[in-house]
Design a protein around this nucleic acid. Structure first.
Length: 512
RNA sequence: GGCGGGGUAGCUCAGUGGCAGAGCAAGCGGCUCAUAAUCGCUGUGUCGCGGGUUCGAAUCCCGCCCCCGCUACCA
């Protein structure tokens, strides 16, 4: 556990890429979890950022006639603007080109280098090299034994590199997974990791001399750190490693590293081993979600399936965007995106479900009580609603702590369904016509409004904007951001006399 | 080749020994507070294929087919 702080991270993104809905999927899920823990009253540290070193960036910069730093400075804002638009409330944003990061990387490397076990050693990297690409290829990447890009023969090359002795850590890793059954999730990914580690681990190279855009090794600056000791280290840099020991002790280890399944091995094997080599605790949990597919294809730039989040946010709005990806795709599994399914979800769950529920309740409060939440006479008209709220709130909490995001949101939706059903059963519009049933009417509308209040609280982590608008329509004076579960989800906290206003529909139907 | 996951309604999926389920979509009825909304009812299935165990199998066993992931090796 993070000692005192719930610490959750996203991967750091590569600024050469154009953000697409696959990248945003990590970010939304992570933000949902982070916001939920804040709702529970926990201190939360949510980290994201960009991975700004490496040969590809150096090349792209050269092609653009810029220095690598100028280049990443120009690209990185494209990512932040997406996070801003998606209401991603990170607490810190790390760029691997920052000096705080360089210091942490050097410290980690030096610590491992000096750990007395010879865990970093000078070795020889051998591979098939394309002189035009200045890159090594593996055999299966080649086309007819030639470079897949230039079509020229590759050369067997050797290069002196430093290596990390990953092979020495297989047993310790296995003991770690054994002692922490949730260290790698979901289960299918844990199995994969176990089978890879049991199959034996190979040392990996951690430095290059063939390019310069990176962090030099402290004991041999002719070498530039290659990828993993740079990228993964961001998670401890931002926690205060090497700069703020007190803070580091409070924040580390991370509770959750949220990643895509493509970087599972690095996070679930390399990273814990690297930390062990420096006598730092491994992260509590690595959570590898699935991939989004579009038309049955894995999303990519090359087949034009790389949909930019704005294409969808412009049409559906940010809250529907966040809701859709969490609700429609079983979290942990691969799932297919389609405009049609998003449109269906939008109308069924948001416009007709939650949105319409809010409209009808607020409209009746308006016409029968001038918008003021009525006093609750002791008529018991709320029926089973309080019990259901209690049950849902408790299940929601358990599911969220278990990162079962899809069923968690589905559980909250049981309240939407039950509330719509409840209104038809109690028919407040009929009670309103009968002067002798004013008390019953008050009881029903109070209960309906109370459900809306609780929905706003429970849904604020997944759709903060819409929850906020609903909260405003309810007219509650305390800020939504100050609410904490479970107390805020207790029945009966909506104060009679609160002035509600119907306002605009939460999720207007979309013509298409 | 090995390991793992999966194949259930038109779609997305739940269901690990006891009459095949949910949501969405579709059809019919009710209601009129609400965003052409909502509520109720309704149909649909060789539960991948073939065997077996069992009083009883989507569920357990054996064999096979197909899809996905990880991994190995041949070459």
């Amino acid at each position: 556990m993070g000692r005192d702080v719930f610490y959750i991270t996203t991967p750091i993104y590569y600024p050469n890429d154009v953000p697409h809905i696959g990248h945003a999927y990590d970010a939304v899920a992570t933000d949902f979890i982070a916001r939920y823990h804040r709702l529970r009253g926990e201190e939360v540290f949510h980290l994201t950022g960009t991975d700004e070193h490496g040969l590809k960036l150096q090349r792209a910069a050269e092609a653009a006639g810029m220095s690598p730093k100028e280049w990443v400075d120009s690209m990185e804002p494209r990512w932040r603007e997406v996070w801003a638009r998606l209401d991603i409330a990170y607490d810190d944003y790390i760029r691997t080109t920052e000096s705080r990061h360089e210091a942490a990387v050097k410290k980690l490397l030096q610590t491992v280098h000096d750990n007395g076990r010879d865990d970093i050693y000078l070795g020889t990297y051998e591979g098939l090299y394309c002189v035009s690409c200045e890159l090594y290829y593996t055999e299966d990447e080649l086309v007819d034994g030639r470079c897949p890009i230039h079509g020229i023969p590759v050369e067997a090359m050797r290069e002196e590199n430093y290596f990390f002795r990953l092979s020495a850590y297989a047993d310790r890793l296995l003991r770690h997974y054994e002692a922490h059954p949730k260290a790698v999730q979901p289960e299918v990914r844990r199995n994969e990791v176990l089978s890879v580690v049991r199959g034996g681990l190979q040392d990996f190279s951690i430095s290059r001399t063939s390019f310069r855009w990176g962090i030099p090794l402290p004991w041999d600056p002719a070498h530039v750190n290659y990828v993993w000791f740079d990228a993964l280290t961001n998670y401890i840099t931002a926690a205060g490693y090497g700069s703020d020991p007190e803070r580091f002790a409070r924040v580390w280890p991370a509770n959750i590293h949220m990643i895509g399944k493509d970087i599972l091995r690095q996070h679930a094997i390399y990273w814990p081993a690297m930390l062990m080599a420096a006598d730092i605790e491994p992260p509590e949990q690595v959570w590898a979600h699935g991939f989004l597919t579009v038309g049955g294809q894995k999303m990519s730039k090359t087949n034009a399936t790389g949909i930019h989040p704005f294409e969808l946010v412009d049409h559906f709005g940010v809250d529907a965007y966040r809701y859709y990806f969490i609700r429609e795709i079983q979290f942990g599994q691969d799932g297919s995106f389609s405009f049609e399914s998003m449109n269906d979800r939008y109308h069924a769950d948001l416009a007709n479900g939650l949105g319409n529920l809010a409209s009808r309740v607020l409209a009746m409060l308006g016409s029968y009580y001038d918008g003021l939440v009525p006093e609750v006479p002791a008529t018991g008209m709320e029926g089973d609603l309080p019990a259901l709220v209690k049950d849902v709130t408790s299940r929601y909490d358990g599911l969220m702590l278990d990162v079962a995001l899809t069923p968690a949101v589905a559980a909250v939706w049981e309240l939407v369904g039950r509330a719509n059903q409840y209104l038809v059963e109690r028919a407040p519009w009929r009670l309103a016509k009968d002067p002798e049933r004013r008390d019953d009417l008050a009881g029903v509308l109070y209960a309906a409004a109370e459900i809306l209040r609780i929905l706003a609280v429970l849904l604020s982590p997944v759709m903060p904007g819409a929850a906020g608008r609903l909260w405003t329509q309810l007219g509650i004076s305390e800020p939504l951001a100050a609410q904490n579960v479970p107390e805020a989800a207790e029945w009966g906290r909506l104060a009679p006399g609160t002035r509600t206003t119907k306002g605009e529909p939460l999720f207007p139907r979309l013509d298409s």
